[in-house]
Amino acid sequence: MDNEKKNNYLVPVFWGITVTGLIILLTMTAKKAFAAIVPNQKIRGCDAYGCGSFGASRGGRKHEGIDIVVSPGTKILSPITGKVIRYPFPYPGDIFYKGILIENEQYSVKIFYLNPTAIQNTTVKQGGVIGVAQNIASKYSPGMTNHVHMEVRDAKGNLLNPTNMFI
């Protein structure tokens, strides 16, 4: 009977320590590396053209980033301190819609649907203005929620889910 009492007593204590330890472990291992790129940042939900979450279906492929809801003309802030590498274009043959690629020793961040204001080959600070949001709904229709698209890769080029990486 003594052993049963010890076991009954130890199980709740064990679970309490495990859960607390797990919470601490998760808090310590979750990298919160990025600053919000707009105030009150929100990931685009689903609309007539799909969903803005990482991994959302895009027909035969998966969404490789997150879409952050913005109004056209909104100033976009850099999520990291890094060097502006280039200005990529999301659509082949369409130079109206633009992007920016910023890299540091840990991350490569590509943001589409903004007019870049940060100068190529210069360093931008985390939280500094890097561009102004474009009107992506004008390319599709008012059924598309206006947003900027953000993709993140690690230093080895592996695609990352940035959803929970914001400070």
Rank of each mutant, 00 (worst) to 15 (best):
F54A: 08
N104C: 07
I111E: 02
K139P: 00
P142H: 04
Y87Q: 05
A118I: 06
N121R: 10
G128D: 13
L101Y: 01
V129A: 08
T74P: 07
R86A: 15
V69H: 04
I85Q: 10
G60H: 10
V129G: 01
I85W: 03
K75H: 09
L114W: 01
P88C: 14
S141D: 14
A56T: 11
G50M: 08
T81W: 00
N121K: 14
M144P: 00
R61W: 10
G60S: 15
P88T: 12
A137W: 00
G99H: 01
E105P: 02
K62T: 14
Y91P: 01
D94C: 06
N146C: 10
Y87R: 03
P90F: 06
G127H: 06
L114M: 05
K139L: 13
G93N: 15
V109M: 07
I76F: 07
F112T: 03
C46F: 00
I102R: 03
E105T: 14
K83P: 03
A48V: 13
V124F: 06
A56C: 08
Q106I: 02
K110D: 02
G50E: 07
S141T: 10
K62H: 13
A48T: 15
P90V: 08
I80N: 14
C46E: 09
G59L: 10
I76G: 10
P79M: 13
P90G: 11
Y87N: 10
M144E: 08
Y107Q: 05
F96E: 13
G128W: 00
G52M: 10
A56M: 11
K98L: 09
T117H: 10
I102N: 02
L114E: 01
S78N: 12
I102K: 03
I130T: 04
G50I: 11
I100Q: 05
I136C: 00
V132R: 01
N121H: 09
T122M: 02
C51Q: 07
Y113C: 05
R61N: 13
C51K: 06
T117N: 11
F96V: 14
G131P: 03
T145S: 03
Q106S: 11
I100F: 07
F54C: 09
G50H: 06
S108Q: 15
K125L: 08
I80T: 12
A118R: 06
P116Q: 03
N135V: 04
A48L: 15
V84N: 05
C46D: 04
K98C: 04
G143L: 12
I130M: 04
I68T: 14
A133G: 07
V129L: 01
I119V: 14
V124I: 11
G99D: 04
G55F: 09
A48F: 09
P90E: 07
D94P: 02
A133Q: 02
Y87I: 12
K110E: 13
Q106E: 12
T123H: 00
M144W: 03
S78E: 09
I85N: 09
I95H: 13
G128Y: 01
V124K: 08
K139M: 05
A118P: 05
G131V: 07
G143E: 10
Y91T: 13
F89S: 09
